[in-house]
């Protein structure tokens, strides 16, 4: 590649870098700010006096956090949820996407199934029927209500993503395998899946992030705090109280308990696992390229 060294193009480079830095900052600053708050004194946090550096640096929030048993119970619940949810997602997505990626000639019911799947994406029964269903299934306070309901909600999108990826794989690979005597299972597991690392990494990432961040179902299906996943636990301590919906008696008790520095510490620790997973999955995105597998 020839490098363009005219002034105009240099200025353009500078502009691009500036924009990228700005975008990066909008992502990093909130994290940094949260970290700064978590290291500050309570009064400084309540006064909104923290900008980029902690005011009155101390580790009290983290010391307090270590004594908060429920935080770690919820943390563990979330880990279980992510492992089960993303694992299940990884098994079901290729199994569903493979037949749906075939044409109607190969798989007659393909369109019917496809519409059924899309239908669930567009319409659903709403929260209360869901609540009643889960109750009748006896899944209140069970990790499976989170894994299955949450999983089902993200599944369709993931399947469509994987299906389109499968469709773009060269048909010739399929035919060559068929000629060599491979059945559908063999083709899926030995040809499609190894070539699909990027899309499988993508859907796994979606699933992991979804299961980690989703808090509403924890609130709806769990009747005790001890069963809450981490983000539900954090949501309930972080959301601002609306004083006009509470009695004065309650407000007097509760307003003394708010603790922004501790909340910031919780939020920050809760972000760490996803931050760690991202770069780990990144390397799959460049693998699995099918370039050169077929000679045309």
């Amino acid at each position: 590649m020839v490098k363009d060294t005219t002034l105009g193009s240099k200025a353009f480079d500078v502009l691009i870098v500036a924009i990228l830095v700005l975008v990066a900052l909008t992502c990093i600053l909130p994290l940094w700010y949260t970290l700064a708050v978590s290291f500050s004194t309570k009064a400084a946090a309540a006064g909104g006096q923290i900008s980029l550096w902690p005011v009155g640096f101390n580790l009290n929030s983290y010391r307090q956090l270590l004594q908060d048993n429920q935080f770690f119970v919820s943390f563990w619940t979330s880990i279980k949820r992510v492992v089960l949810g993303a694992g299940l997602n990884l098994i079901i997505v290729p199994l569903m996407a493979y037949p749906l990626s075939k044409t109607i000639r190969d798989f007659r019911l393909r369109n019917v199934l496809m519409w059924a799947v899309i239908f669930t994406m567009l319409f659903n029964g709403g929260l209360i029927p869901l609540y009643l269903t889960i109750k009748k299934l006896g899944m209140f306070n069970s990790i499976w209500s989170l894994v299955l309901v949450g999983g089902a909600q993200t599944l369709v999108f993931n399947v469509i993503l994987a299906m389109n990826f499968f469709r773009n794989l060269p048909k010739e690979l399929d035919e060559a395998a068929l000629v060599d005597g491979a059945g559908p299972w063999y083709i899926l597991l030995k040809v499609y899946v190894p070539l699909s690392a990027p899309v499988l990494a993508t859907v796994s990432l979606f699933s992991i992030v979804y299961h980690w961040n989703e808090f509403l179902y924890g609130l709806v299906f769990m009747t005790r705090e001890q069963f809450y996943p981490l983000q539900t636990y954090i949501q309930q301590v972080v959301v601002m109280l609306d004083p006009s919906t509470m009695s004065t008696d309650e407000l007097q008790r509760l307003s003394q308990l708010s603790n922004r520095t501790l909340n910031a510490a919780k939020i920050f620790i809760a972000m760490v696992p996803v931050l760690v997973v991202y770069p780990f999955l990144q390397r799959f995105f460049i693998h699995g390229i099918t370039l050169g597998s077929v000679k045309e």
Partner: peptide, 16 residues
């Protein structure tokens, strides 16, 4: 306890 909820979510839980 049939259910517990934090003050921020209690109303929603009751409505449900």
């Amino acid at each position: 306890n049939a259910f517990t909820a934090s003050p921020t979510n209690y109303d929603q839980k009751v409505s449900l």
